[in-house]
C-alpha cells in the first residue's frame, strides 16, 4: 500500500470521525446505549488500564526492543532507553 493511499485513507477516517461525532449532535441521533445499560462496560474486568503500572512496564519493554512506537493509548513520552 503506497504512502499516498494510506494518507488518503487516514484523512477519510478522520473526516468520518469528525462527521460522526459532530453530525450526531446536529441531526439529533440519540445515544443508543443508555447510562443504565452500561453496567457491563463499567465492570472493572473491562478496564484496559486496570493495572497502569504493569501497562507502563510492558510498553517500555516493547519500545526498547522494537522499532514501533506510539498509539499505545497509555500516554508516555519517550523511551529513555539508549
Amino acid at each position: 500500500m503506497s504512502k499516498i493511499i494510506k494518507l488518503i485513507l487516514l484523512r477519510i477516517l478522520l473526516c468520518c470521525c469528525v462527521v460522526s461525532v459532530t453530525g450526531c449532535a446536529s441531526i439529533n441521533i440519540e445515544p443508543w446505549v443508555k447510562p443504565y445499560e452500561r453496567q457491563n462496560l463499567a465492570d472493572p474486568i473491562m478496564s484496559n488500564n486496570r493495572h497502569p503500572i504493569a501497562n507502563m512496564h510492558i510498553a517500555h519493554v516493547y519500545e526498547a526492543r522494537e522499532s514501533s512506537r506510539g498509539a499505545e493509548g497509555t500516554g508516555g513520552g519517550g523511551c529513555g532507553c539508549n
Binding site: 487516514l10 477516517l13 470521525c17 461525532v21 446505549v33 445499560e37 452500561r38 457491563n40 462496560l41 473491562m46 484496559n48 512506537r69 506510539g70 498509539a71 499505545e72 493509548g73
Partner: peptide, 20 residues
C-alpha cells in the same frame, strides 16, 4: 497523539488511536 473511544453496544467498545 489523538484518540477516539466509542461505546458501540452495551457489551462492546472500540478505540482508535493515532500518534505521530
Amino acid at each position: 497523539r489523538a484518540g477516539i473511544s466509542q461505546i458501540l453496544t452495551r457489551n462492546l467498545s472500540m478505540n482508535l488511536n493515532f500518534e505521530a
